[in-house]
Amino acid sequence: MPLELIGSISDGLCPERIWHVAWHPSGDILASCGNDKQIQIWAKEQNKWVLAQSLEGHEQTVRRIAWSPNGKYLAAASFDVTTSIWENTSSDPQDIEFTHVSSLEGHNYEVKSVAWDSTGTLLATCSRDKSIWIWEMQEDNEFECLSINSGHSQDIKCVAWHPTLELLASGSYDDTIKFWKDIDGDWECLYTLSGHTSTVWDISFNSTGDRLVSCSDDRSLLFWKYFEGADKWKNVCKLVDHSSRPIFSIDWSHLNDKICTGSGDDSISILEQDKSASTADSEQYKVTIKHEKAHNSDVNCTRWNPKYPNIFASCGDDGTIKIWKVIE
């Protein structure tokens, strides 16, 4: 079997529904969050995943978590309209001891996503209130609001930073993807990508930041390429009806360019570019593995390990976290 299950976390340790998993930059620690209002941090002990710490404080579902690039901070977006910031205050660099250091308030409705930029100084949050807030971390763990971006006409589901530039992308219930950049102190919407016919659930940049892939409620995947000459993002590949149900999650590996997706039909797929079929203007991507019944319910999130190639984690509505290996 091309997809091997190499680890699993479940059976009473996890909440009913796990929304998101995020790898620590070291690749050895995994954080998860869900409807039990907590954030769980898992570490490997001998060959088993054990709970290293449980972070409490949110009053409703924690929807998404994000590690800062240096792994010292963890941000968590919650339906309780706040975003919490946690710092690893352990004196031992190998140890896990996260303390709550700040609470970002201001969104009027549920916060859906949070993301750190590549430098670890900027944080973006997005919400059902249709706005994206850009925050800058100051000394003493305080945060200053740099911008409140309006533009989407509906609930914003996800935000993702470009891997190297100070450029933010967002996906929304309004079916579009928007790009945002700071121009002379004011953040403006540079590009709006239309193509999906329903909610955009997740987006992911490739490692060089000139490609973006998006997945949607419309059951399709769209691949976008940045054309520098024209200063435009264009759709170069469509995989429609990739799934029989909404596709909730997508991630583009920065180690080997593979793509993993998680879907509402309980399956996980791996995709790669079909180089033989691609031209300059039209690229082809194909599904190399479709693993049905990956979970016993909707797959909410799939994320590649940042250090170990071909390893990724998934989580779902069945309350389990699974670690997989792609066998080549």
Partner: peptide, 10 residues
């Protein structure tokens, strides 16, 4: 503007 008001209020 809203972002500056946020910081004051905070």
């Amino acid at each position: 503007g809203f972002r500056n008001i946020q910081n004051i209020v905070r």
